[in-house]
Design a protein around this nucleic acid. Structure first.
Length: 647
RNA sequence: GCCGCAGUAGCUCAGCUGGUAGAGCAAUUGCUUCGUAAGCAAUGGGUCGGGGGUUCGAGUCCCUUCUGCGGCACCA
């Protein structure tokens, strides 16, 4: 029998017989290590304790103290234990797959009856039994025929389909504990007792298509959370509660920003406070884009189908469009229009008016374009996914040679805007040519190269998504990270070689001949609706002063101060501050609480002392400290703070 | 669109096995003028998402529809 040498993390080298298992290796070092072991790292690969080690390698033994492998195994074993628990309770339920995901796992089942919350409790109890039994997890390699026979006998069609998808000749690894088994590539824990019985929690049930395919059966997916111990689980559950408190739908109600109602699903009714935020954001963007050389336009929302047929939307995007039929005077047939789902075709119409020269390029046309898309009912979500929205859209008409500069300028604008809005971290994704595409390879080469060079010149990190570009050109997507680490794709920069040709956009080149320009679709915020949702969640409603709908509330402590309160509000408004008076017959405690809950950044409390001194007591949101300053300096301070970021 | 769950006063929610709706907050009114996160009291307010059915009788059961929520699919 041949020998192998295993190198340990401390540099030690030991000799073993080939085929030794990691469990045996651990035992050879110390029985206590063998007992604590959960898996091994073999040349960096996650290795099951029971798998034979074929050749010399670097090895380290993992225990539950090794965070990453421990969590992966705990979650993966939870999936198996849950599947077993379910089948022990309901033997007719068919099992499918159960992968690890962030913070936990899920497992998809096929069962006629829906799982109820009470069922989840029963499953959890059964899982705890299995865990407490500390049953050893065993594994062996089966050949395909044996595995197929096994699952045919058990009547598990989904498992059989999974087996059929595994390439011929590959062995199947079976895992089992107790009388229950599943085929799985592993690795797994050594025994079920290594899963912390109080470190997991089943959270919810949801439908999910088999293999993610909407034409396949809908299965029931049970989600669970799993951590090393109860404390970590509790901490995570607390974090989820905190995240729920930031839900923009909840904040929107509390701050009286907007509402949605069933007569207009997916369309926002903006209230005064919410519309103030919207307008601030729009005015800010207008200023930034104007300074960056964009020219603002406005195009129709209802457009005849003829244009959509020309642009290709009628064929490719019709099911997502709101159609408007009109009885025209004297016409035999109804005229069919569509609410625009995108602005690009209309922007080309503006470009097409009058003869354009190469001297006009790059031409940057911007529109806060109101669009409507018929989003499927299940996909709508607060402000984040709506049917009526406004994009901070612009189209840059330019030559292929101008792409790089335009791209670099755009990224600089975008990163500056994100920074102003409180987002300092964002990722860039470059999507390159798909198999099915329009345009010559030469043009694609140039465009992809231009995008890549633009990012690299700015020394920004990025990842490439090969083949993920649109059929009409390569693109960049920008994903920002919010205060609690969630990522949102907002910005985009897309090259389009197709639309200008389809819609006959042309310019006269230096050579006197007509050429098609390249069209660059770009957005920074994406949609105002969604971006405001992101802002609200990022700031948990505590917007920076310049965006806050109500910036200052001036609250009287006694009614004899009311006149001075009115005077202060008037002066603040004159200085451009969104100020309101609160002279209600309530205690200052009550007013402070209400406006704090309402996320007003500054409360000015006015009592007789302030009246006499002509001063104000300033209390900022989130602080309990109160600072008394003169009225004049308050006007100056808040007038300045109310301005949007200056450039 | 699909699976599941939900839809009761402005908001949050209670209402068991069917017998004509309840709380807290908010609102209104009165009292209180009280220094930085909810002062006291009284009063008004819903026919239980819409439609249909079962029943002597339905918020409570059934069907249907809409909307919302959690996912999945979708997001050229």
């Amino acid at each position: 029998m041949s020998q192998i040498s295993l190198t340990f993390p401390d540099g030690n080298i030991r000799i073993y017989a080939a085929g030794v298992t990691a469990a045996e290796v651990a035992m050879s070092i110390a029985p206590s290590l063998a007992k604590a072991a959960i898996s091994a790292q073999l040349d960096g690969a996650h290795w099951d304790l029971q798998w034979p080690i074929p050749q010399s390698a670097k090895i380290s033994i993992n225990t539950l103290k090794d965070e990453a492998p421990a969590l992966e195994l705990i979650r993966h074993d939870c999936a198996h234990i849950m599947a077993r628990a379910v089948q022990e309770i309901w033997p007719d339920v068919k099992v499918t797959i159960g992968p690890v995901r962030d913070y936990g796992w899920f497992y998809d089942f096929d069962r006629a009856e829906p799982f109820t919350p009470e069922d989840l409790g029963a499953i959890e109890a059964k899982m705890k039994q299995i865990i407490n039994a500390r049953e050893p997890v065993r594994t062996e390699v089966w050949d395909r025929a044996r595995a197929i026979a096994y699952y045919e006998e058990r009547g598990e069609p989904f498992k059989l389909e999974l087996i059929a998808r595994i390439p011929e000749g590959e062995d199947l690894r079976m895992y089992w504990h107790g009388g229950w088994q599943d085929f799985c590539r592993g690795p797994h824990l050594a025994h079920t007792g290594q899963v912390p019985a109080d470190g997991f929690k089943l959270t919810h049930v949801a439908g999910a298509y088999w293999l993610g395919d909407a034409s396949r059966p809908m299965l029931q997916r049970i989600y669970g959370l799993a951590f090393k111990n109860r404390e970590d689980l509790k901490a995570h559950q607390l974090m989820l509660e905190e995240a729920a408190k930031r839900d923009h739908r909840k904040i929107g109600r509390e701050m009286e920003l907007f509402h949605l109602q069933e007569e207009a699903p997916g369309m926002v009714f903006w209230h005064p406070n919410g519309w103030t935020i919207y307008r601030q954001l729009e005015d800010y963007m207008r200023g930034r884009q104007k300074a960056a050389g964009y020219r603002e336009i406005r195009t129709p929302q209802v457009v005849d189908r003829v244009l959509w047929e020309k642009s290709g939307h009628w064929e490719a995007y019709r099911e997502n469009m709101f159609i408007v039929e009109v009885d025209e005077d004297g016409a035999k047939e109804k005229r069919i229009n569509a609410l625009k789902p995108m602005n690009c075709p209309c922007h080309v119409q503006v470009f097409n008016q009058g003869l354009k020269s190469y001297r006009d390029l790059p031409l940057r046309l911007a529109e806060f374009g109101s669009c409507h898309r018929y989003e499927s009912s299940g996909s709508m979500h607060g402000l984040m996914r709506v049917r009526g929205f406004t994009q901070d859209d612009a189209h840059i008409f330019c030559t292929v040679d101008q792409i790089q500069q335009e791209c670099a300028d755009f990224i600089e604008l975008l990163s500056s805007v994100y920074k102003d809005l409180g987002f300092t971290k964002f990722d860039i994704k470059l999507s390159t040519r798909p198999d099915v595409r329009v345009g010559s390879d030469e043009v694609w080469d140039k465009a992809e190269d231009a995008l890549q060079k633009a990012i690299e010149r700015l020394a920004l990190p990025y990842t490439i998504n090969p083949g993920d570009g649109a059929f009409y050109g390569p693109k960049l997507d920008f994903k920002l990270t919010d205060a609690i680490g969630r990522e949102w794709q907002c910005g985009t920069f897309q090259c389009d070689f197709n639309t200008p040709v389809r819609l006959e956009a042309e310019y006269v080149g230096e050579d006197g001949a007509k050429h098609s320009p390249v069209m660059l679709h770009r957005a920074i915020l994406g949609s105002f609706e969604r971006f405001i949702g992101i802002l609200l969640e990022n700031y948990a409603g505590k917007l920076p002063f310049w965006l806050a709908p109500r910036q200052v509330v001036v609250a009287s402590i006694v009614s004899d101060a009311d006149d001075f309160v009115t005077e202060i509000v008037t002066e603040l408004r004159r200085a451009g501050v969104r100020a309101e008076a609160d002279t209600r017959n309530e205690k200052i405690n009550y007013k402070v609480r209400e406006h704090s809950v309402g996320k007003v950044p500054v409360i000015l409390a006015i009592g007789m002392k302030e009246v006499e001194e002509r001063s104000v007591a300033v209390r900022r949101l989130g602080e309990t400290r109160v600072e008394t300053i003169s009225l004049a300096s308050a006007i100056a301070t808040f007038g300045l703070e109310a301005l949007p970021p200056q450039h």
